[in-house]
């Protein structure tokens, strides 16, 4: 029996990398400020000391170059983790990600595999401006060949990151900076969480709320409020968007007949749009009302805090959407 200790998400992620680097000497970590500084949020703290500068590399600000290098290393026997500080910087490496990382295995008829994990920390809603605020997650969901992970708790973050590092396919791993200090139970004993398995974070019978990243916590708060009004909401956290656990979402809808999908991306062709489409196609006859989306507005993120509040999904907006279904 493992003791139920509590640690925060940054610590959980650190443990995941540390355990995997101990287990597998081909695992290396590269990125801006991941070494001496231990990451701008301390997620890779202590890894340089333990594994040395060969395996924990501070890179120059050359996202195209070092993501490409991560791919080159991955196809030749290493198992790299590359950190891109914020998703807003991923476009600098987009050519390598979309044209190589995602496709090399397919384009070489299975001769090459790309066991590369790219980690990046979302800083949406922090007031740093529109180029330090995006997740860009739908870009990667739309790119065949990439797996996409979106954890919301320390437990999920650790188990999913370990799975990502071991996965032979390329993985985009989205962390949310504002969750780094959130504590949660994480067993001391080793565990892995398989991809493509959603987690029901709260059970309910009247309404399904699907949410990702920090919005899972907003959805849980909304569910608490709704319960006071007699609406029992079920909160489903897909945890990975590729592969997506359609079954859990659809089964939940079959039970509750109503669904609100919450997304930290603009609504057009976004994560919520995709989940809504799947539900419409595969569970239409179980719906008792329209599928509701709560996504970010289709605008760049402003800096002024009152405007940010208007732009991003939150507990209140989820409750408003939910009530339209009753």
């Amino acid at each position: 029996m493992s003791t139920q200790r509590e640690i925060n998400m940054a610590e959980a992620l650190n443990e995941a990398m540390r355990e995997e680097m101990r287990r597998d000497p081909t695992v290396i970590l590269m990125g801006e400020d991941v070494g001496v500084l231990g990451g701008v949020y301390g997620v890779s703290k202590g890894l340089l000391d333990e594994f040395g500068p060969e395996r924990v590399r501070d890179t120059p600000i050359s996202e195209d170059g070092f993501v490409g290098a991560g791919i080159g290393a991955a196809i030749t026997g290493l198992n790299p983790i590359v950190e891109i500080m914020y998703p807003d910087f991923l476009p600098c490496a987009m050519n390598q990600i979309t044209n190589h990382m995602a496709k090399l295995r397919y384009m070489t008829g299975g001769q090459l595999t790309v066991p590369l994990t790219i980690r990046s920390a979302i800083i949406q809603g922090r007031g740093s401006g529109a180029d330090h605020a995006q997740t860009l997650i739908p870009w990667f969901v739309q790119t065949p060949g990439l797996k996409v992970v979106v954890p919301s708790t320390p437990y999920d973050a650790k188990g999913l990151l370990k799975t990502a590092i071991r996965d032979k396919a390329p993985v985009m791993f989205f962390e949310t900076a504002k969750l780094y200090l959130n504590k949660g139970p994480v067993p001391e004993d080793e565990y892995l969480i398989p991809f493509g398995k959603a987690d029901i974070k709260r059970e309910g019978t009247d309404l399904t709320i699907v949410a990702i990243c920090n919005l899972v916590l907003e959805a849980l708060e909304a569910a608490k409020e709704l319960e006071k009004e007699g609406i029992k909401a079920e909160v489903v956290d897909p945890r990975t968007l590729v592969p997506l656990d359609k079954e859990t979402i659809i089964n939940s809808v079959k039970k509750t007949n109503r669904i609100v999908v919450v997304d930290n991306n603009p609504s057009a062709c976004g994560v919520a749009a995709e989940i809504a489409a799947i539900v419409a196609e595969e569970a239409f006859d179980y719906l008792d009302g329209p599928i509701m989306r709560v996504a970010t507005l289709q605008i760049p993120e402003p800096v002024a805090p009152p405007l940010i509040k208007l732009m991003l999904p939150n507990k209140e907006k989820i409750i408003t959407a939910a009530k339209k279904l009753f």
Binding site: T26, A69, I71, G72, L78
Partner: peptide, 20 residues
């Protein structure tokens, strides 16, 4: 076939060769 995109891959392969 993306012009200029092969060089980063070569760098990564060389890093891999060095570490291994």
């Amino acid at each position: 076939s993306i012009v200029g995109a092969g060089a980063p891959l070569a760098v990564g392969a060389a890093l891999s060769a060095t570490l291994r």
